[in-house]
Every structure is written in C-alpha cells, then in structure tokens.
Computed example of a mutant assay.
Amino acid sequence: MAKIAVDSFGSENAQLYTLTNSRGMQVSLTNFGARLVDILLPIDGQLRNVSLAAKSDREYMEKDSYVGSTVAPVAGRISGAATLIKGETVHFTENEPGRTLHSGNHTSNEQYWESEVEEENNRVVFSLVLPDGYNGFPGAVQVQATYELTEKNELKINYWAKSEKDTIFNPTNHVYFNLSGDFNRTVAEHMMKIQASQFLPLGEDNMPLGEFWPVDGTAFDFRQFAPLGQGMDGQDPQTKLVNGFDHPWVLEDTDIPVEVISPDEKVRLLMRSNQPAVVIYTYNHGPTDMAGRHTVFSLECQGFPNACNIENFGSILLEKDQEFDSHFSYQFEF
C-alpha cells in the first residue's frame, strides 16, 4: 500500500492529500473545503481523471468554490432565507433573492479544515467548527468529513456532526463527474440507472414544489438504463425549466440505487447512500471557466432540499448534542 502523499495546493494554508490503492486508483483531496479533487482510474495504461477539478485553492476561489467541496450545514436552497426551529424563527444569510443557497456566504466550502491522515485505513479526516450564528445557523457545530479509498476501488465519504444548539443540518458533496475523462464532451451519452419511482418537481423559482411525482412517462425515468441526454433535449417541461436536470430523486432502499456507465463502457460508477435523495445536476449554466454546459453531472446524496420548510419532506433537525451521520460512496469498475 502506497503512503498517503501530502503536497501544497496553492496558498500556504492549502494541502493536497493523494490516496492510492494497490490497483492503481488514486484519489486526491484538499483541506480547502474538505474537497474531493481528482479521481484517477488506470485505464488502457493511462490515468483517466473522472472528477472535475482545479489546480489550487486560488483557482477554485476564482472559478467555482463549490466544485468537489463539502457543502454544510445545509446544501441547496432554503426558501425565505428562514425557518422555524422548535417554534422559533431563525433567519439566514440571503445570498439569492428571497432565499439562502448552500448555507450562505463563505461557508464550509471556502474554509480550511483541520486534517488528520490515517494511513493504515487509507483515509483522511477533515474537521471544522461552524461558529454559533454563522450565516444565521445556530451552533457551534462540530463537523467531520471522512474520505476513504478501499481496495475495491470504492471511495467512501462520511459526514458526522454534533451541535451545541438545536439547528438544521443537511450536507452534501458537490463532486462533478464525466466518466469519459473528457471535460469538453457532453455527458449526454452516459447511461444511467436509478432505483427511484418518484422525483421532486421544481417550480419556476427552482425550488421544490413540495410534491412527489412519478417518473413514469417522464425524462426522469431511469429505472432501466437510459442516456443522461434524455433530460437535455428540452422536451420534458421540468427539464426545460432548468435546461437539464437539477432535481432530487427519491431513492429506494436498495444496495446500489444509482449506476452510471461511460460512453466507451470502460467505466461503471456504483453509488451507495444512506440518504433519502440524490440531486443530479447536469451543469446547465455553462460554459464557465471550469466546464462547458452539460459536460459534467453531480450525484449529491442528501436529505430533501428545503425540508426545513416543507412538512412532508422529513426532518433535517439536528438537536443539541445529537450526532448526525451520513455515509455514501462511489465505487468504480474499470
């Protein structure tokens, strides 16, 4: 087993950690945003990177500080930039008109986390304390993000948290994939299968309507393998609304709820999760300095977005001294 390599990653605060297994797979991480950087797969004698990445912390700050990062305490949008926590109204930073996106400004994705290397487990543990009241969120909240690379080519991600006050907590990882390794190429030809019979529709404001719609007869039906491009042709009213996918699917309780196969069929991605939803975003806003439109996709494991303000979406309340545990993984067959 190769040792975990540690290198600088831009500014003096940023470190890059590279995990390698005996099969030649490599995963690089940075303490800047507890972020997944590269996922390198040995294919045809070369290393294929299937994760959208920048070269330094500065480049992420300049181009897109969400890519690959840990988004905490709450991923997605919170309507009204406020919620009720045990009967008390709590207001958050409004960084989009009338709402809070990804927990407000300069949150976990732009922080330098403490790092602990566990070579015997091929694992890195990042730790951060979100201060009480930061962007309005009650706390203080201790957060840990753990990344582990196994001999089965599985990247395991675990989020743990504990708060000193009642708060809300619903994090995710914002990794973007292109299994072809060509980030100038659309992901439309990727074949995807999702064990989900329902998805959450969005309104004109991109917020969930609070309803569960069947996937039958829609672009959201991936119960059998289908091309990701079926959500990019603008024929379905929901995909036309956001120029692709930016929606949560309601995952069934099964071992492998999501599978994706690269266009050349040389890479298969298996996703596992203990979370109720996966948000799939097909980078509908490109081109940007990071990627072109529809050239990457996300698999964001989390609770239902805006659950704190939608009664039938389940609870994302994290009570004082309660422990939060989210785990999910991306396994690669190649």
Rank of each mutant, 00 (worst) to 15 (best):
P248Y: 06
N105K: 08
R185A: 03
S65T: 07
N178D: 04
E114H: 14
F225V: 05
I316V: 15
R272D: 01
R123N: 08
Y112C: 10
I256Y: 07
Y17P: 01
F126Q: 14
L228G: 08
P248A: 15
S315E: 10
S298C: 15
A145W: 06
S262D: 00
E323V: 13
E333W: 01
S329G: 12
I85S: 11
Q144N: 10
V6P: 09
E12K: 14
I39N: 05
N309C: 11
P138T: 15
L29W: 01
L19Y: 13
P138D: 15
P73K: 03
F177V: 08
M192Q: 14
F212P: 07
N312A: 14
D216R: 04
D289V: 05
F225Q: 05
N309H: 11
G286Q: 08
R48E: 00
V278H: 13
N49E: 01
I43K: 06
G286K: 06
I168T: 10
Y60L: 03
I261G: 07
S79L: 04
E120S: 09
E94T: 02
Q331K: 03
A291W: 12
F126N: 15
L19N: 11
G80D: 01
Q230Y: 07
G24C: 13
V141S: 00
I256K: 09
G303E: 04
R223P: 09
A53L: 01
A219V: 03
W213Q: 03
K152Y: 08
V296D: 12
S329V: 09
G68F: 00
E189P: 04
F225E: 11
N243C: 06
W249N: 14
P214G: 06
F334V: 15
Q198S: 15
E118S: 10
A54L: 06
D7L: 03
E252D: 11
P305H: 13
L130S: 15
D44T: 10
T288N: 00
V37K: 02
N173W: 00
A34H: 02
H102S: 07
N170G: 12
S8Y: 07
W113Q: 09
L52A: 07
N309V: 10
D166N: 12
N153D: 02
K63E: 12
W160D: 11
P257S: 10
F304V: 13
D236E: 02
L200Y: 10
L36F: 11
A75Q: 06
P276A: 14
N31H: 09
G80T: 01
N49A: 06
E323L: 05
G87F: 01
Q275V: 03
E154S: 04
G286N: 10
L317S: 13
F297V: 14
